[in-house]
Amino acid sequence: MATGAIENEKDIWKGGEGNLPMNASYGKLMMWFFLVSDAFTFSGFLIAYGYARFKHVASSYHGIEWPNPDDVFNAFPAMDVFHVDKAPLVFVGIMTFILILSSVTMVLAVEAGQRMDKAAVEKWMLWTILGGITFLGCQAWEWMHFIHGHGEGTWIGGELVKGANLVQNQYGPPLFGDYFFFITGFHGTHVLSGIIINIIIFYRVATGLYQRRGHYEMIEKVGLYWHFVDLVWVFVFTFFYLV
């Protein structure tokens, strides 16, 4: 533990051994500082979205209002089967619950790691990976629906627009579509890389690397990253789907 005095300079870089600034290991501190920088990137995106939305004047853009998310994201897979026309927020709500649950299983994996319980770490890591993959699948469906559009489409400047891409958008100004693609896409990329990192860590747990190392600190580090992805989604959910 932290003693203040550094006996060997190389101990600083060991992580979890020797000198511990602020009583946290080197790896965890660096993960925290990376997350702070990532938080700035995401804030930049979300603030830019707010900027575009506050500045938008319908009369200067073919009279198109900034869309109400309830009218854009109101679809659900197999809605026709249940004879439902609109289900605003339902699908994205389920996605939010999936991500929160995968965060919980990650905490349980960390907790199991602190008890050196290899079997439990494996179990909870697998649930976390499954939650992440399910979330990404939902997001892919949501993107597909947004890109293909629904209903009759909208006449914009003498042209019938159906669905959305980076230059056209049936629901509102193209900027809305651009921010949707960039913000949820950037978040989705984080989820994807989180899944890949989780799979690698799961493999190393299964092959007993951390058992031999004597501690499961790596689970805590990927756990921090995974919770951060969940944290960002909480903000994306509020500012893109609710407000």
Binding site: M22, A24, H227, D230, F235
Partner: peptide, 18 residues
Amino acid sequence: AYFIMAEFMHLGHERKSL
């Protein structure tokens, strides 16, 4: 955000300086 950071990310139990 408070609950995720304080409990899940364990920040509530870290040192004040961190």
